[in-house]
Each structure stands twice: as structure tokens, then as C-alpha cells.
Nucleic acid binder design. Structure first.
Lengths: 94, 94
DNA sequence: TAAACAAGTTTACTTTATAAACCAAATAAA
DNA sequence: TTTATTTGGTTTATAAAGTAAACTTGTTTA
């Protein structure tokens, strides 16, 4: 009756991150922090988990002399997000 | 940008329970177990939490000689569920 | 009357989430 | 120029959740 909810996506912050990335296709750490309002520590941990699952890629580089961490959603991540949203329907209707 | 998600409802099992109760208005422990597929222990714990929050009422009685635990959603619970679903929109769109 | 079953609850353990502390490099202030 | 301060994070420690397994109480069945 109820679909299982992907535990990786069923997390407030990870879901917000995926939402931003799906909308903007690329976002850096600072931007994600602004958009989600998360603490840096929490964001760092959750990005690692999403990357470990292959839902996003995390690229560390520099912009001038400042470090810059750029994230992108993968096809796997996109598919997982779509499936998660679809599963949610069994809980919330429509 | 993203609404906070009510942590009491942002739980797979508690959300499923609320979903069942909102649909059927009254459900006993055994029925909830069937519908959600949860273990009895987990269901027991999560019902307690929903009741503690005032989202449901839990009534213990007997049906013949067998104990029977009947749950109902409260107005508070209904409102919280509606708010939760609304908040989810900021994450998943539509 | 002893074994099995039903309906839960409690306990113990594992996993998550999160904040706080920390670090290294760059920039600004004294 | 040394000393704060800020930026962009990571690591660590703790609290909260989720869950299974064991337990309880009473009932039915063999």
C-alpha cells in the first residue's frame, strides 16, 4: 500500500539540496548554504552522503584563491528524486 | 525558501499512520499494522509519539476478551498533516 | 494443563541528524 | 608586520530516531 521512501532522500536537508540542484543544475557550497539555511557542518556531511550514493558529484576547485566546491546532480540522482516524489504520493495523495 | 518540515510527520511510519487515519477516521492497532507493514514494536512507539503531540487519540478497550487499541486523528493532527503536505511543495514542486 | 497465539509494550542497539569545535588559507586591521 | 577576522569548509561529539528482539499478559486450542 505505501511505497518505501528512499532514506537517502527522506531527509530535510538532503531533499532541499537535491531540489536546488535539480532546479539549477550546478551550485556551489556557499550557494547551497544560503538556499537551505543549513549549517556548514551539516551541509558538508549530507553532501558526502549524497555523493557516496552517486546522486550528486562534488568537485573541489578554486576560484581565484578561494576554494570552491561545486555540486551537480547526476542522472541517478534525478531518477531517485523522481521516484521519491512519486512514492510520496502514496502517503499524501495526488 | 524551504519551509521547515514538521519532524513529527517527517517519518515514514508516522506519516503512513496519519495517512491511514485521515482516510479512515478510525483504525485499530492490528489494521494499522496491516496497512503499514510495520513491526508491532515500532508501531507502538510511533503511535505514542503521535498521541503525545496531540495528533491522534489512542483508546484502549476490549472487543470481547481481546484488547483493542483504537486510534483517531484529531483536528490538530489533520491541520498538521495539511501543513506538512503544503510545506513539502517547496521541496518537490507543484 | 501445557503449548501456541494475540495484542501490545519495553529494552537495547544501530543509524541519523545536528551543532559545536576545529583547521587552513586569505584578507583586513592595528 | 603581527594579529585579528573572515571564508570555506571538515571532523568530532552528542542527542534524537528508528527498529528488531525480547518480554508481558491474557486467551484460545490441543
Amino acid at each position: 500500500m505505501f511505497d518505501r521512501l528512499d532514506p537517502l532522500l527522506h531527509s530535510e536537508l538532503r531533499l532541499a539540496v537535491m531540489s536546488v540542484l535539480i532546479g539549477s543544475d550546478e551550485a556551489d557550497f556557499v550557494y547551497l548554504r544560503q538556499q537551505t539555511g543549513a549549517t556548514a557542518g551539516n551541509l558538508s556531511v549530507q553532501l558526502d552522503k549524497l555523493a557516496a550514493a552517486g546522486y550528486i558529484t562534488v568537485e573541489k576547485g578554486f576560484q581565484g584563491k578561494k576554494p570552491r566546491t561545486t555540486c551537480r546532480v547526476t542522472d541517478t540522482g534525478r531518477a531517485a528524486f523522481a521516484a521519491y516524489v512519486e512514492s510520496l504520493r502514496s502517503y499524501i495523495g495526488k
